Amino acid sequence: MDELTRVRDWDTGAEGLSDQARAAARARLETAVAEESRGRTARTGGLNRRLMLRTALAGAVAASAGVAVVVTRDGDGHDRTTRLDTVSAAEVLRRAADRSRTANRDLPVPRDDQYFYTRTYVVQTYLKGGRTRTWTDESWTSVDGSKPSLRQENGKIHHDPPLGKHEVRWPPTVYSKLQQMPTDPDRLLDQFRHGMKSSPLNDVQAFFEGCMLLTEPRVLPPALQAAAFEALSKLPRIKLDYHDATVTGRRAVGVSHPKASFTFLFDRKTYDYLGLRTKGSSAKKVHGEWKQVNYYYKTTTLEDIQVVDRMGQHH
């Protein structure tokens, strides 16, 4: 924490993605999906590192386990407002979309030279032994990636350099680029699929893309978050996750995809977007091979997000 204390005193229009950059992003996603299907995410404790956001935090005035891609351009009660056994995963996402349209929007539109400050509460519970760890991570993320960022992940501090000359973030964090994204759910889903037809691989890639848009620190233009929920509601094979979860004292229901290791969590009554739960495992090397030791669930919840002028600042 000494380092965090010191950093508080530290003062501190690229083009759209080309076809080559989109191809690179797609290739990275395909690699990540393939690795997930082979169970390699156990070594990283959750989503493949290619998909882990540099800030590993929440966003879109929601919460996250943090994912992003940097690409190179060259149940038990009877009264739950609506009984969950009669509501599909698609309906939960549509109701979350309706809820997001009426949510308070008190964050200013960020300038490219500013930072997103985020404070995230994390709960990690092991399936064997019931051990639970809790901690809070703080991070400062450069809006356009042109400045260094400071990220706290699992309580450890990381200093991330600015993006390289030919690197871009996808999905974007710059507000003007987000404004160019479609708010029609069908068009947005087509973008999540990179213009490809529905298939098992393309659909799980679209689920990852939706997660990236909804969970990285950013301020979304009006209607974009709702469109993202509605786009994901159109994916086949999404399902309700009845694993009992409580997020900041609120009972949650999850929506997941069978090929993804993460679950979106929503309030069971209001359908507010509460956070993200990932399934991972601790591992150790035995005779040169990684062996899974114990599985756990990690739930991340955004406690605060602000737009600030410099690293180390928060109100």
Results as ranks from 00 to 15, higher is better:
207 F>C: 01
63 A>E: 11
16 G>D: 10
270 T>A: 04
176 S>W: 08
107 L>Y: 00
253 V>I: 15
256 S>T: 11
102 T>Y: 06
129 G>S: 10
27 A>M: 02
301 T>M: 04
104 N>V: 05
190 D>N: 15
18 S>V: 03
313 Q>D: 09
205 Q>S: 06
81 T>H: 10
85 D>K: 03
271 Y>H: 13
265 L>S: 02
66 G>R: 00
182 P>Y: 12
42 A>M: 12
79 D>L: 04
190 D>W: 07
211 C>E: 13
220 L>F: 01
105 R>E: 09
243 H>P: 00
134 T>P: 05
61 V>L: 13
286 V>Q: 14
1 M>L: 03
172 P>I: 02
128 K>R: 12
92 V>M: 15
41 T>R: 13
79 D>R: 08
285 K>L: 03
231 A>V: 13
1 M>T: 13
288 G>A: 02
168 V>K: 12
13 G>W: 15
248 T>S: 10
54 R>Q: 14
125 T>I: 12
104 N>W: 06
286 V>K: 13
148 P>G: 02
64 S>T: 10
3 E>I: 15
296 Y>R: 08
213 L>P: 01
236 P>T: 08
245 A>K: 14
218 R>N: 06
124 Q>P: 05
230 E>P: 06
228 A>S: 14
27 A>S: 07
299 T>P: 00
90 A>G: 05
244 D>L: 11
5 T>F: 09
122 V>E: 08
88 S>I: 01
120 T>Y: 00
174 V>Y: 11
126 Y>P: 02
42 A>C: 04
50 R>C: 03
311 M>F: 07
114 Q>I: 01
248 T>W: 03
